[in-house]
């Protein structure tokens, strides 16, 4: 028992002190793996004519999904929203630093992404991370030299202020892990499947889409289960905004 506790104490001391070293050492391996997997997919395609059609079908579906996501992420009234932003002296953010995703679920058991941009690229902790199409994913939690960790809003127990688009009701989005959220709203609140849940800031970015609504006859609240707009297992690039 004492031996095991000693191992734990030693491990905590060594591993947490050398936190960035492990990730910095692994980053080149992950980059190489991402590159090799793309080369391998391209090299073997010539031998599989039917398989190449299947691959093309998959990539076209991904492109379609991306376009649908971009459409869904647009603010409801762009002209009106732009006027509000101008009134508040806030310009709509369209730029940002693009970073590749090195590690994503299911490799990590938590809703954490490791991206290939860090302190050397001007990334700071607390920066917002979003998809190139617009929906917000999370914030930068830890920054290293050339890499960073992004904690997704869907991380278990993570609470995020949001707004139900249909009713404008402010809610607290609670992460359930795996890209899923849950939120409790009063029973009489009008919510339907497919409703969008937006961020509470002035930019009103898409956070989640309602998937399921659970309510018991005796409950005064209804449980709204929602899903993040992105497929976490396929994220390849993100945009970092300070």
């Amino acid at each position: 028992m004492l031996f095991l506790l000693g191992v734990l104490a030693f491990g905590v001391l060594v591993f947490y002190l050398m936190n960035g070293v492990f990730i910095s050492a692994a980053a080149p391996l992950w980059r190489m793996e991402n590159g090799l997997s793309g080369v391998w997919a391209g090299a073997t395609e010539i031998w599989r004519s039917r398989q190449s059609l299947v691959s093309e079908n998959v990539s076209l579906k991904e492109r379609l999904s991306s376009l649908e996501l971009e459409l869904a992420a647009r603010p409801p009234a762009p002209e009106e929203n732009g006027a509000w932003l101008a009134l508040l002296n806030r310009e709509a953010q369209s730029d940002g630093l693009v970073a590749g995703v090195l590690v994503r679920p299911p490799r990590t058991p938590y809703d954490i992404l490791i991206i290939d941009a860090g302190e050397d690229d001007g990334v700071a902790a607390g920066a917002t991370v979003a998809l190139p199409e617009g929906p917000v994913l999370g914030v930068v939690s830890e920054v290293y030299g050339g890499t960073s960790k992004v904690k997704l809003f869907s991380s278990a127990g993570e609470e995020t202020s949001a707004v139900l688009e249909r009713s404008g009701l402010p809610v607290i989005l609670e992460g359930s892990g795996g890209g899923n959220f849950r939120v409790a709203v009063p029973r009489e609140t009008w919510v339907e499947k497919g409703d969008r849940i937006l961020s509470a800031d002035v930019f009103a970015r898409l956070l989640a889409v309602v998937e399921e609504i659970n309510v018991e006859p005796t409950d005064s609240f209804k449980e709204v289960l929602s899903r993040g707009p992105a497929n976490l297992f396929n994220i390849r690039f993100v945009v970092i905004r300070p």
Partner: peptide, 26 residues
């Protein structure tokens, strides 16, 4: 134990409370 700590260091977030440590992989 060391492998669990490696998982936490690589893929987990910074542990800032004792209760979070209780649920760490290590």
């Amino acid at each position: 134990i060391l492998l669990g700590l490696l998982i936490d260091v690589l893929y987990g977030e910074r542990i800032d409370s004792f209760s979070a440590f209780l649920f760490s992989a290590g």
